[in-house]
Design a protein around this nucleic acid. Structure first.
Lengths: 106, 106
DNA sequence: GCAAAAGATTCATATATACGAATATTCCAT
DNA sequence: ATGGAATATTCGTATATATGAATCTTTTGC
C-alpha cells in the first residue's frame, strides 16, 4: 500500500549488499572486536573498514563500546544474524538448483 | 574465510534492495498473480514489472506457470518471505530507536 | 496466417554505491 | 602540551543499478 514502507525496507536490505560488510558482520558473530582486529581479519584498508562500520552503526546493526583508544564493535540485534542466515539458506538453495540444472544438461 | 561466499551472499541480498521488487513480492504473498495484475496493483509500467520479474525469476525467488497468454507468478520459497519479515522487524526496531532519540531531544 | 493481447528484452541515461588516498579527530602516555 | 596510536571523515572517480521508451516475442482467437 504505502510505497514508503517498501522504500525503507529496501534501504535496510542495502546494508547487506556489500561483501565486506557481510564479512565484518560474520567476524562479529563470535563476539566484539576492535576496528584494528576487524581490519586485520578482513585484510582490507582500515579506512574502508571504518566506512563500513559507519554504515552499520548508523543503521543500528552494531553497537560500540570505547575502551581507551580502542573501540569495540558488536552486533546490536540477533535478528540481523537470523535474517542473514535465512538469506544464506536461500543462496544455498539457489546453488543446489543450479547444480540440478547442470546435471540435467549432461 | 572464503570471500566468494560473502560476494554471493551480497548478490542475493541485492535482489531485495529495490522497493518495486519488494512490493511485487508483497503482492504475491496472498497467492499467484499475472503480470497484468501485478502491473495494475503496483501502478507502474508493465515493462518495469517485467524487468523485476526477470530478476526474481533468475534468482529462483518466484516460479511461473503459463495459462494461455497469461503467466502466473508465485513465490518459490517461503524462506524468502521469512527473511523479508525479519528484515522488516529490523526496520521497525530501527524506527522505534529513532523515535526514542527524538523523544530524548524534547 | 493475421491481429491483438500479454509479457519480455534492449538501450540510453540518471542515480547510487564502493573504493582508495589523503586528511582529520580522539584519546592516552609521557 | 606534544607525539603517537586508533579510528573517522572527505573527496574524486569508477562501477553498478533502476528507469522509461521503444521494440520484440509468444499465444490465442478468428
Amino acid at each position: 500500500m504505502d510505497k514508503r514502507i517498501f522504500e525503507m525496507h529496501a534501504e535496510i536490505c542495502k546494508i547487506f549488499t556489500n561483501p565486506r560488510r557481510l564479512e565484518i558482520i560474520s567476524l562479529l558473530r563470535d563476539g566484539e572486536k576492535t576496528v584494528n582486529e576487524l581490519t586485520e581479519l578482513a585484510g582490507v584498508p582500515q579506512a574502508n573498514v571504518s566506512q563500513h562500520l559507519t554504515v552499520l552503526r548508523q543503521n543500528n546493526v552494531v553497537t560500540t563500546r570505547r575502551e581507551g583508544t580502542n573501540i569495540y564493535y558488536n552486533i546490536a540485534n540477533p535478528k540481523i544474524l537470523q535474517a542473514c542466515d535465512l538469506m544464506k539458506e536461500v543462496l544455498l538453495e539457489k546453488l543446489t538448483e543450479n547444480e540440478k540444472l547442470v546435471k540435467r544438461m549432461l
